[in-house]
Every structure is written in C-alpha cells, then in structure tokens.
Amino acid sequence: MKIKVGITGQHGFVGKHLYNTFGLFPDDFERIDFEKHFFEDDKKLDFFVSECDTIVHLAAVNRHDSEQALFDINIGLAQKLVESLKRTESKAHVMISSSTQEDRGNLYGKSKKEGREMLAKWAEEYGGKITGLIIPNVFGAFGKPFYNSFIATFCYQLTHGEIPSIATDGEVKLIYVQELVDVIIHEIRKGNSKPEFVVEHTATKKVSEVLALLNEFRSKYLDSGEIPAIKDRFEHNLFNTYRSYINYETYFPVKFTQHTDARGAFVEVVRLGIGGQCSFSTTVPGVTRGNHYHTRKIERFAVIKGKALIQLRKIGTDEALNFYLDGNQPAYVDMPIWYTHNIKNIGDEELYTNFWINEFFDPNDADTYFEEV
C-alpha cells in the first residue's frame, strides 16, 4: 500500500529535493501537495493533514531581520500544525526538521527545539508518531544563496563574477541534501517514533577548505572546461552543487578549440581529472535520444558532426532550455543533475555525438529516470 506523504515547505530547498525524490518511487509513495497559504486557512490545512499518512514538517524561517519574529513565526507554524492534527484526530507519522543549533542559546535554535517538543507532546497524548530530526548544516544543488548555507552563497558568487569572503573560518559539520533525503525516506519506511533523532553529518570541513575547492572548480571547470579531480563523495556532491549555480542559458554551448591543417581538424573533447565512460553515437535525421535525467551523474554531450538541438528542463518546472549545435563549430553542453534532457538530429545528415559520463553504466543502479523534456 502506498504511503500518502505531504511536505510543509514543499517549495523550499530541502522540500523540493524530497518531493522530487518521492516521485522516483511511484509504487511506494503518493505525494499530497502542500501550499504555503494552507497555514492561513484551517479548512485547507485540515484537508491536507487528513489526507496524509506521513507529514514532513519543513516549513520554517531560517533568517529574519528580527530574531524574535523568526522565533514567533517558527513556533506559530508548529502550533498551527499541532492544532490541525488535533482537529482532524490524525494518527499520522509527523517528521519535523530541527537543527544542531538547538542548544546554542539563539532564538532560532530555541524555536526549532520547542517546535519539536510541541509535536512530540501531541504524539504522546494523541497516539500519533513523531520523528524529531536534528539536522547538521545542509548543502546541495539549488540552495538559496545568502540564506540556506555559506556553500550556496560561495557557489553563487563564484559563478556570477563575485569574490567570496570568509567571516569565520571554523569547522562545519555538513550533510548533502540528497543524503538527508535518503535518511528521511528510510525513517518513513521504518515508521518508528523517535522524538529526538540526530542525523549524522557526512563531512567535517573548514570554511576555507570548501572555498579552496570551489575556487578550483571555477578555475578548471568554468574557465577551462576541464572536469576537475574529484577525490571522494563529498567533493562529488560539492561539484554538482557548484554546477547548479551556473547560468546555463548564457554559458552553454561551449565551443571547442579546433586545430586545423592540411590533413583536417583536431578537437580535444574532454580533459578529465577523473575517469568515467566515453561513448560515441550516430543519429539519423529527425530522431531524438534521451528524455531522461540523473540525480548524481556528471555528463557531457559533444556534437562533432551534423546539427543538433539539445534541450534541458529542470524537474518540477515547465520551461525548456534550447541549445543549437553545429558540427562545423564543434561544441558541448554538460547536463546538470535533476534536469531531464535530450538531443535531436535537426539536420539533413547523420549526427555524430561524443558522450562522456563520470561513472560506468550499472543496470542495477543506473541513476537514469525517464521523463519527456
């Protein structure tokens, strides 16, 4: 039986990743949509709550000009959810995102702790379930700069011609957003009540270490088109995070440097700091390849002969990006994570395309999800 799951804060940073990941498991989860204005309408909030087997409460304010206002908003949202759970006599499994800042004495941490305890009290008194997620610093693709994390801010600045600065160079405990999503889904499947569940961080880095890596990504990837050396899972996740802040509409397609002489032309397709799999395809006129997306893979399409239309569309949005490439001026487009993409031969001759992807194809873990652009 499918688990009906709803996410308050569905359109926020973690909420979007969680919502999209639920979509990868249509046989296991049914997504109940949530909108911010439900908190201002008891009937709509009650309908949402009554429809859900599991509610992931992510709606909160992370930053505000007034700490007291931030505290009041976060407590108010938790209170409204509790009141709705009571009115509807819900027995749902409620998961609430809290923070490792709970015990730091600031009003943000206090608001998260009191909200978690409020829902734990409801679960104990009314027979519901509670998972109080105490979460370290989260980073990942599409985070809001100057709001969600210092990594989001640095990535935005380094892809928009700005120079980041470090206020305090301390060590930070980090978790990648998809790793957090995997933890949440695992706990939903288990279905146990855990009023205080500490989510383990997956990396500890100094702020300066992170900035040094991001500067390397800018120098090698953005300035030179090189895929940088990626030593571990953290660096892989950080690179995909960095790539998500590039303005694809203006950066791609990137034309190759051609070296020509009497014999013909030579083009270097990809310079790698990591391994992976290279492949080559021919495509007859009018045929489209692809229409799928990846959640972790790094991929490059390089057109070397013929005319092609490469299309990208971010999952959850309607706008497609169109890139026209011609083998007379060989060029490439890299595929961002969570963008469905395709390539179509729009010419009158065969299309020749080189593909590079950072990992070998594994049919048991393909990280390939089909969706029309």
Rank of each mutant, 00 (worst) to 15 (best):
L18V: 05
T282S: 09
E40T: 09
L222F: 15
I246E: 03
T8C: 11
D72N: 15
L174F: 08
W338N: 03
V210Y: 00
A59C: 12
R31G: 02
G286C: 09
K307H: 06
V333Q: 01
Q311F: 04
D33R: 05
Y126D: 04
F301K: 04
G273R: 10
T241Y: 01
G9S: 11
T250P: 04
E235T: 05
F48H: 01
T295F: 04
V303Y: 01
E349L: 06
L24C: 14
D103F: 03
Y242I: 10
I246D: 03
F29H: 09
L107H: 03
H11A: 10
P195R: 13
F142K: 01
I7Q: 03
V14E: 13
T250D: 15
I230P: 00
N328Y: 11
E226Q: 06
E114G: 04
G273C: 13
T168C: 06
I188F: 07
I310D: 08
S98M: 13
R233V: 05
I32C: 02
K16F: 05
N240Y: 00
K194R: 14
I130A: 02
M1N: 12
A141I: 13
S244C: 14
K129P: 01
L81Y: 06
D362R: 01
I246K: 07
D182L: 06
F323N: 06
D318R: 01
N106D: 15
P228F: 02
N240V: 07
T100G: 11
T153H: 11
L211N: 00
K80A: 05
R218H: 15
E235Y: 02
Q329M: 08
A366Q: 15
H57D: 00
V94D: 03
N20V: 00
G9V: 13
N148G: 09
Y339A: 03
A60C: 13
P285F: 04
K86N: 11
F146K: 14
K44P: 09
F34R: 00
S111Y: 08
G6D: 02
Q157M: 12
H160C: 11
S111R: 11
H186R: 06
A92M: 06
L211I: 13
L45N: 04
V284W: 07
K43F: 11
S99N: 11
